[in-house]
């Protein structure tokens, strides 16, 4: 299993440079969670869930008030910080969204996975039929992965919004600065 993951990672690393350029065609869905580079072209579909465009999302927000989950990676503070000109910039998101950073990463610690399960449970009021919208940035696998996880946990109405925060901004809709929710570890 471990060997397989590593082999997959190597194949993915080889295609990383082209994937990052942004103009690439959508790749097919991976069989499970994507463990390659987070940034790059994403699939056009997500089995078990539904893909939303900005207008569809706006309509869903107006009609049903779904749970909005932003899974954008948390800017990682470098360990060997020499210059100190580093600060976490403000994080903009959809109004009303909850930011659960890093839960869309490929390999996540068990503690983070348990936290994601618990947060989703609380946010949906333990209702697996509650609409759940998961997003981050364009060309970012984090939201695909997190949506996949929610589907695997048994949520029945998982919506993946691949255009993410920037797609929302591009439509001229307002965003708000939000803080990350504290996770263990």
């Amino acid at each position: 299993m471990r060997v397989k993951t590593v082999a997959l990672a190597i194949v993915l690393a080889l295609s990383a440079t082209t994937a990052a350029s942004g103009a690439d065609p959508a790749p097919p869905e991976p069989p499970g969670i994507w463990t390659g580079p987070l940034q790059g072209a994403v699939p056009a579909t997500i089995t078990g869930g539904e893909v939303l465009g900005t207008e569809e999302l706006a309509a869903l927000v107006a009609a049903e008030g779904p749970v909005l989950v932003d899974v954008a990676p948390w800017p990682r503070k470098p360990e060997n910080l020499a210059s100190g000109t580093w600060s976490r910039p403000p994080h903009r998101s959809l109004p009303g969204a909850v930011w659960l950073p890093d839960v869309g990463n490929g390999d996540i610690p068990l503690a983070h996975e348990a936290w994601l399960r618990a947060r989703l449970k609380a946010l949906t009021g333990n209702d697996p039929g509650k609409p759940l919208v998961i997003f981050c940035h364009p060309n970012c696998w984090a939201s695909w992965n997190a949506a996949k996880r929610a589907i695997l946990y048994g949520y029945q109405r998982v919506y993946w919004y691949p255009d993410g925060v920037e797609g929302w901004q591009d439509s001229g809709r307002p965003t708000e600065v939000i803080q990350a929710q504290k996770r263990p570890g």
């Binding site: 987070l38 990682r76 060309n139 970012c140």
Partner: peptide, 14 residues
């Protein structure tokens, strides 16, 4: 400026 690279760009061949 509209550009978004916040999704942890990997270290590539470059």
């Amino acid at each position: 400026v509209k550009a978004a690279g916040g999704c942890s760009a990997p270290v590539g061949e470059n």
